[in-house]
Design a protein around this nucleic acid. Structure first.
Lengths: 203, 203
DNA sequence: GGACCATAATGGTCTGACCAATCTGGAGCA
DNA sequence: TGCTCCAGATTGGTCAGACCATTATGGTCC
């Protein structure tokens, strides 16, 4: 259980549950803290994190507001950063990275029939690639946007054909990383993201 | 004066001043708070921000440590994200964005002889491009790495020829953005970053 | 109907305390 | 001498309550 994200994620869950729309005002800090059962100081550290991610915006005397977020913009960023992550992973991966990648890929194959579990395995595979990149900025930036990607992953995981396609695409990425072929890894990741992007546009 | 970054930047300044090396332990929170003249709660919100950026890492009972950071990795991320920012800026820029860009470019020309001022103007120009992109994720990610870029900018700004070159390169970017030509803007930004990268490698 | 102001609401900060995990150094023993 | 083990100190994590600064609200007065 990651302690750092705990409050931030609880707040995100609460917002989703109450259907707070972008631009809406959040409940006051004092009330949020009480509802989540934490002190206001701890809540504020969580809110600070969300504010740094651009998810919320606080205005003294007025309130805290949910910022608008364009999933298309988010995907464009992914489209630029994940191929880099794949390239670096191919150049720097260690034995432990390869093992993690193999595990994640095997799990994707194993839970192909379950959209929910498949989505989680997919997340782990992408996380393993980012981790293998060995780049601190890449890891940090992905951590920042990771929890914003839940929607798009849900879209992908919900379609049977997409899941099957994703497995072979991810397999190609993993293979290129294992071979240490940066160009191929980057290309394979672009290919994968192109398919994901197409399905997102259709949805 | 941006209140949000205040503590985080003060801490960064202090670390630079005391030559805290990556992996070193920072002074205890209570001492840092006293030295910066803020309460421990405010200090912690600042530290939380640095921790989210991957700059520091806290271990309960042990201390807070400065994480290692590879400037080369950072530049690779920049190399991927800034061209995207330039492209989006060309597609979405408003009149206000164009005015800011023109101002920043004019200022770069005006302070060409002063490395310090030039560096600041350069930062403003890049910030204006990011702002004009209109993409929340892009803005957020750049805010996250902005203060990590000081070193590389110092390198660029310290060389007379590089400054002159940077002006014409940035001018080309601004022109492409004004024309609404995303392809040209992205290419011009790549060109600019290639020059910056070459100077970094040399240094 | 509109301008103005007292009041409430809300985020920003501070102080001081206690808890939990970790580190450190000395006591005791083999 | 060298090792183990444990108690205390150190340090980050959290909490509670208070006050300040800014903004929103609603009523009053013209």
């Amino acid at each position: 259980m990651p302690p750092r994200n705990h409050v931030a994620e609880s707040v995100r869950a609460l917002l989703a549950e109450e259907q707070v729309a972008p631009g809406d005002r959040l409940p006051p800090e004092r009330e949020l803290a009480a509802r989540l059962g934490v002190s206001r100081s701890s809540l504020r550290e969580g809110l600070r994190r969300l504010a740094d991610l651009g998810i919320i915006e606080s205005r003294q005397g007025s309130g805290t507001y949910l910022a608008p977020l364009d999933l298309g913009d988010l995907f464009e960023v992914r489209l630029r950063l994940e191929p880099l992550a794949a390239r670096l992973a191919a150049q720097r991966r260690g034995e432990e990275d390869l093992a993690r990648l193999a595990d994640a890929l095997a799990e994707m194959r194993g839970v192909l029939g379950d959209p929910q579990l498949f989505g989680e395995a997919d997340v782990r595979a992408h996380a393993a690639i980012v981790e293998a990149s060995g780049s601190l900025p890449v890891r940090v930036l992905f951590a920042a946007i990771a929890d914003l990607l839940r929607h798009s992953r849900a879209t992908t995981a919900g379609n049977d054909d997409l899941r099957a396609g994703a497995v072979s695409e991810v397999a190609a990425i993993v293979e290129a990383i294992r071979d240490g072929d940066g160009d191929a890894a980057e290309a394979a990741m672009r290919d994968h993201l192109a398919h994901v992007g197409a399905s997102l546009s259709a949805a």
